[in-house]
């Protein structure tokens, strides 16, 4: 079975660096790359009646937008790299969802960029990279 590497991608500069880094690792190891894009979503937020009614429509639009603006441009850019790339777009808590993707795909490592949160918010609530480094069952590489 080919080795799999998950890389988190949110369209930011940092994430871009992380993808390039992951590509080089995947190429060297002959591994497949899974590009994961997570849309922040809590099933416990409060919605108005109109928001509830329009949710399904909005979700479709959000997924289309994620594909058009974030995922597709990246795929185009890296398709010539010779690495097998699979894309996953999911809703959920970012760290938890990335973790679930790692577990479900049986990936051997996780690579992500450091997010641009201010140090105060990260200190109070923890950053995605920080919490993943603590709980992930596979080696995590955080690309600055």
């Amino acid at each position: 079975m080919t080795e799999k590497i998950v890389v988190a991608y949110d369209g930011s500069e940092n994430a871009h660096d992380a993808v390039n880094f992951a590509l080089s690792i995947a190429k060297a190891a002959g591994a497949d790359l899974i590009v994961a894009h997570v849309l922040e979503w809590s099933p416990y937020s409060f919605l108005t009646k109109t928001e509830v009614e329009e949710r399904h429509k909005r979700r479709k639009e959000e997924l289309e937008r994620a594909d058009k603006a974030i995922v597709s441009p990246l795929l185009q850019e890296i398709q010539s790299s010779g690495v097998n790339v699979e894309v996953m777009v999911k809703y959920g808590h970012i760290a938890e969802t990335l973790l679930a993707i790692v577990k479900d795909t049986g990936a051997s490592q996780l690579i992500l960029g450091r997010t641009g949160q201010s140090s105060l918010t990260s200190r109070l609530f923890g950053s995605v990279a920080g919490s993943l480094a603590q709980v992930a069952p596979v080696p995590v590489t955080i690309v600055p």
Binding site: L39, W41, P43, Y44, S45, F46, L47, T48, K49, E51, V52, R55, H56, R59, E62, L63, K90, Y91, G92, T97, A100
Partner: peptide, 25 residues
């Protein structure tokens, strides 16, 4: 609690949200 919610349906209105919205009325 979401015990029966398919994770692939995440992003749709959850049962909790449906209940909360109806309750607010």
């Amino acid at each position: 609690r979401g015990d029966y919610s398919d994770p692939n349906d995440a992003g749709e209105v959850s049962h909790f949200q449906a209940l909360a919205t109806a309750l607010s009325g």
